[in-house]
Amino acid sequence: MLRLYGKIFKTGSLTERVSPLPKTISDTVMKDEAVKQAGHRLKTIVDKRFRGSLAIREVDAGSCNACELEIHALNNVYYNIERFGVHFVASPRHADILMVTGPVSRHMEAALRRTYDATPAPKWVIAVGDCGACGGEFGVSYASCGAVANVIPVDLAIPGCPPAPLALIQGLLSLCGRL
């Protein structure tokens, strides 16, 4: 047990601390710095618009699982998105935002519609990844409806194959920023 605590203390906190937003953001900021900046702005908005807590329900509507891996990474110690007040919830009934990865397979079409209907208004939908945004490598076929917007209304698309965690944070920021 002592070893366990020792390891925790030795590892320390790797999460980049939220620092006050400087007046200008250089284009050449380090990636960690970028997480910090985007995160701080995100927190400001979440605090103001969502009373400090933004709930996201993630729905895999047919993705290859790569987008899920990067969405998961938002919870690792480096990005630790919960500290900005953003957390992933188990039920669409608790969610403000649906984060949907695609392409929407025809076999998931009904489940996605039902998940959307189960989410209380006001609600927003983010289509994650190239497939969610436009159908990507899979497009529309006998088995695929393509982009998420072909099935439910989408407020923002975050392209990328898959989008990196930082792109996901920036996407959330740009959606929240215009609410």
């Binding site: 047919g62 993705s63 790569a66 899920e68 998931m108 490598e137």
Partner: peptide
């Protein structure tokens, strides 16, 4: 549930296109 017709949409691709698709059979 995530059947998206990979075997079908592979048909008619060129080798590079197939390699891209194969890289997305399972993202991990």
């Amino acid at each position: 549930y995530v059947h998206k017709g990979i075997e079908k949409i592979a048909e008619g691709r060129d080798p590079l296109g197939l390699a891209r698709l194969a890289g997305r059979v399972s993202g991990d």
